[in-house]
Simulated scan of single mutants.
Amino acid sequence: MSDKRIGIDWRSESLAAQALGRIDAGTGAISPPIHMSSTFRRSPDYAPERTYIRDENPAFDQAEALLAELEGGEAAMLFASGMAAASAVFMSLKPGDHVLAPTLMYWSLRNWLTGYAREWGLEVDLVDMTDLAAVRDGLKPGRTRLVWIETPGNPLWSVTDIAAVAALAHEAGARLAVDSTVATPVFTRPLALGADLVMHSATKYLNGHSDLCAGALVTRAVDSEWSRLRLVRASLGGIIGSLEAWLLLRGMRTLFPRVRQQAATALDLAQRLAAHPAVASVLYPGLPDFPGHAVAGRQMAGGFGGMLSIRVRGGRDAALAVAASVSLWQRATSLGGTESLIEHRASIEGKDSPVPGDLLRLSVGLEHADDLYVDLDRALRGI
Rank of each mutant, 00 (worst) to 15 (best):
W329H: 05
M307Q: 14
I53F: 14
L212D: 12
F90C: 01
S334M: 00
I53A: 14
L236R: 12
P33Y: 07
P291W: 12
L255K: 06
D131G: 04
Q262C: 06
S281A: 13
L93P: 01
T219W: 10
V165R: 15
V147I: 01
L67C: 12
R233H: 06
R250T: 05
D161A: 14
L146Y: 11
A29N: 12
L146D: 10
I149V: 14
D125M: 02
L376Q: 09
A47K: 09
L328H: 09
A166W: 08
Y116C: 01
G138N: 06
D377K: 11
L308H: 10
T338L: 11
L243K: 10
M1H: 07
F90P: 00
T39S: 15
I162V: 15
S2Y: 03
N154W: 15
P48F: 04
I240K: 02
E225P: 01
Y373Q: 07
F304S: 06
L93Q: 11
R143Y: 02
I23S: 03
A65I: 01
A323Q: 07
A192K: 12
E13L: 00
A278L: 01
C213T: 12
H98S: 14
G215A: 09
A266S: 13
L376W: 07
Y373P: 02
L217R: 09
L212S: 15
A323I: 00
A29D: 13
Y373R: 05
L328I: 07
G215C: 11
E69Q: 12
G173D: 00
A324P: 05
G314Q: 03
E49L: 08
V99H: 07
A80T: 08
A195P: 06
S235W: 01
E74D: 14
V218G: 03
W329D: 02
A202E: 08
T27K: 02
A101V: 12
V232S: 02
A80Q: 12
R189H: 14
M199W: 15
D268R: 10
V312D: 03
A80R: 11
E349T: 05
S180L: 08
A88F: 04
V178R: 13
A117W: 05
L308F: 10
I6S: 12
F304M: 07
L341Y: 11
R230I: 04
R42C: 06
E171P: 00
S92Y: 02
G357C: 04
W226P: 05
Q299F: 10
D137E: 14
A84H: 10
D179M: 10
E13I: 00
R313V: 05
V198A: 14
P190D: 01
S87E: 09
K4N: 08
S43T: 11
F40P: 06
V295M: 02
